[in-house]
Each structure stands twice: as C-alpha cells, then as structure tokens.
Amino acid sequence: LTDEELVTMSVRELNQHLRGLSKEEIIQLKQRRRTLKNRGY
C-alpha cells in the first residue's frame, strides 16, 4: 500500500487489507496511517 492509499482509504477498506496480516504488521500500518493523517495530507 502507498502512503496515499493508506490515507484516502476508508477504515472498512483498510481492515479488509489487514485481514491475514500479522499483529505486528497491522500495528505498524496503523501507526504509519496515523502519522500521515497528523501531517495533514
């Protein structure tokens, strides 16, 4: 997933992508998404 996709994707879509990932990967992705959102994309 690109940063842009992460930010513009709805939470529902995101959760579908996260299905099948490990807990660590999910946590990393969610942190990255929060960081991007805070940057004001």
Rank of each mutant, 00 (worst) to 15 (best):
L6T: 00
I26K: 14
Y41P: 10
Y41C: 07
I27A: 11
Q16W: 09
I26T: 07
K37V: 07
G20C: 06
E25N: 06
R19E: 08
Q31P: 00
I27K: 13
K37T: 05
T8P: 01
N38C: 15
R39C: 15
G40I: 15
R33T: 04
G40D: 13
Q16D: 11
L14H: 00
L6S: 00
R33D: 02
T2P: 03
V7P: 02
L1M: 06
T2S: 11
R34W: 06
Q31M: 10
I27D: 12
Y41T: 13
L29I: 15
T35G: 09
E13M: 07
E25W: 04
R34M: 06
L21E: 01
N38D: 14
I27L: 10
S22Q: 06
E5W: 05
L36A: 06
V7F: 09
I26D: 01
I26Q: 15
L36Y: 02
L1I: 10
R34Y: 05
L1E: 00
R12D: 11
S10T: 13
S10A: 04
L18D: 01
R19Q: 11
T2G: 04
E4Y: 14
K37E: 07
N15V: 12
S10E: 04
L1A: 01
R32S: 01
V11A: 08
Q16E: 12
D3F: 03
V7D: 04
N15C: 15
L36H: 03
H17R: 13
K23I: 11
E5L: 07
Q28Y: 14
M9I: 06
Q31K: 13
Q28A: 14
T2W: 02
S22V: 04
I27Q: 11
T35N: 15
T35E: 15
E24L: 10
L14V: 03
S10F: 00
E24A: 11
D3I: 03
Q16H: 08
N15F: 09
E13T: 05
S10I: 02
D3V: 02
L18P: 00
R39S: 14
K30N: 05
T2M: 03
L18H: 01
L1W: 06
L29A: 07
L18F: 14
E25R: 07
K23M: 10
E5I: 07
K23R: 12
L21G: 01
V7H: 05
R34A: 12
V7S: 07
S22R: 07
L29T: 07
D3L: 04
D3Y: 02
E13I: 05
N15A: 11
E24M: 10
E24G: 09
G20L: 08
L21I: 04
M9P: 02
R12S: 12
E4H: 15
E4A: 10
S22D: 06
R32M: 03
R32E: 01
L14K: 00
V11P: 09
K30Q: 09
I26L: 04
L36D: 03
R32Y: 03
N38V: 06
Y41K: 14
T2F: 02
T2E: 03
Q31W: 06
L6P: 00
V11D: 13
M9Y: 00
R12C: 11
E5Y: 05
Q28D: 09
R12V: 10
N38P: 03
E4V: 07
E4Q: 10
T8N: 15
D3S: 02
L21S: 03
E4I: 10
E5R: 08
E5S: 04
L1P: 05
L18K: 01
G20M: 06
D3P: 02
E5P: 00
Y41R: 12
G40Y: 14
K23A: 09
M9G: 02
S22P: 11
K37S: 03
L21P: 00
R12I: 09
M9L: 06
R33L: 15
L6D: 01
V11G: 06
L36C: 01
H17N: 05
R39Q: 15
T8D: 07
N38K: 13
G40C: 14
L18V: 07
R19V: 12
S22T: 11
T2A: 04
S22K: 07
Q31F: 06
T35I: 15
I26M: 08
T8I: 08
I26G: 12
Y41A: 12
E25F: 06
L21C: 04
R39F: 12
D3N: 04
V7K: 07
S22A: 08
T35D: 15
L36S: 03
N38G: 08
H17K: 10
N38L: 09
E25M: 12
V11Y: 09
R34G: 05
D3E: 03
Q31N: 10
N38F: 06
G40F: 13
Q28F: 13
I27P: 02
K37C: 12
I27V: 11
R34F: 04
E24Q: 12
I27H: 11
E24I: 11
I26P: 00
L14R: 00
E24W: 10
L1Q: 01
E4T: 08
R33N: 02
K23H: 10
Y41N: 13
R34V: 07
V11F: 07
M9R: 02
S22Y: 02
E13L: 05
R33S: 03
G40P: 07
K30P: 00
I27F: 12
R19Y: 06
R32L: 04
R12F: 09
S10W: 00
K23Y: 10
E25C: 08
Q28C: 08
E25P: 00
V7Y: 08
R32N: 01
R39M: 15
K23L: 11
L14N: 00
D3G: 01
R34E: 13
E24S: 12
E13K: 07
L21H: 05
L14A: 01
G20R: 07
L6M: 01
I26Y: 05
L6C: 00
L18T: 06
G40S: 11
E4L: 12
R33E: 05
H17C: 11
R32A: 02
L29P: 00
V7T: 06
